[in-house]
Design a protein around this nucleic acid. Structure first.
Lengths: 147, 147
DNA sequence: GTCCATGCAAACTGTTTGCACGCGC
DNA sequence: GCGCGTGCAAACAGTTTGCATGGAC
């Protein structure tokens, strides 16, 4: 069966131990369907487990990334944000003013990547797309601002 | 006239001074049509000017980016690589094995971004796309390797 | 009981900043 | 000559690592 196993099962079946800390990180990523960086995740984790260390967060995220449970996205251009790997690939728009992130799908990208694979004789394993600009709210704010 | 002014003119007309160091950085970026990160650029600059400081490199790149002369690309996922702003927007493929970068154009992206702008009522000012995988050389290497 | 995973602190990397001097305009 | 731009070193932020202890299996 190719049922998407839940994350805990994936950890176990990949040969790693299911620890309290790893479960906590997964829990937080589940609740926050948004995008968290290591620091933000650490903060949230601390409220549930005062003793958790930032190194554990980094090690756990690296592990989850390696076994494919989470994806790292580079949105604000600097350090990565993490989210549970979505069933369908999607991409992100970031508002340069308020930082809001909007997700969207672009089915055409698969075809575009396929064409490129043929033309350039390459093998594409990962497609990243990222838009930035102004979200509708910030467009309105700017309009209403009289200078 | 909307002739693309050369970079030096752009610096001057933006109200900044044209210094030896800034010219050197531009020269290096011109010669290396490839993609250099701050460190690599610093190394190359040192061979021409032993006394140049890494801080100058960072400050110069930030300036050139601000006035639109260079673009910062996040290819290897971590710190940015810089290239002179190309006349036509293009995107990059990075080989995960050998690090080779291939450039390509995707005219359709403009239209895709336009559609999204309408649907989501956003204003897109920047489109980023990045592919990764294996280049043709590395595909062959892998094939020929008997294990 | 074994050995992987954790917490802590120290180390490290890439980048930024404060300041006195030097140079473009 | 004025004031921005530079070099240097120190500061900083984010991330990684070494090591002794603790917990998953």
């Amino acid at each position: 069966m190719s049922y998407p196993k839940n994350a805990v099962d994936t950890i176990r079946s990949s040969g790693y131990r299911v620890t309290r800390q790893r479960q906590l990180v997964l829990e937080i990523l589940d609740k926050n369907q948004g995008h968290l960086d290591a620091e933000a995740l650490f903060m949230k984790a601390k409220t549930k487990d005062m003793n958790i260390g930032i190194a554990t967060i980094y090690r756990t995220l690296a592990l989850l990334k390696k076994i494919g449970v989470v994806k790292e996205e580079f949105l604000g251009q600097q350090h990565g944000q993490f989210e549970k790997t979505p069933p369908l690939p999607h991409y992100h728009f970031t508002c340069l003013q308020c930082g809001r992130v909007i997700e969207f799908e672009v089915p055409q990208l698969t075809e575009i990547a396929h064409q490129l694979s043929k033309n350039k004789k390459i093998q594409v394993s990962e497609i990243t797309m990222h838009l930035s600009g102004l979200c509708s709210q910030c467009i309105n704010k700017t309009k209403n601002k009289k200078s």
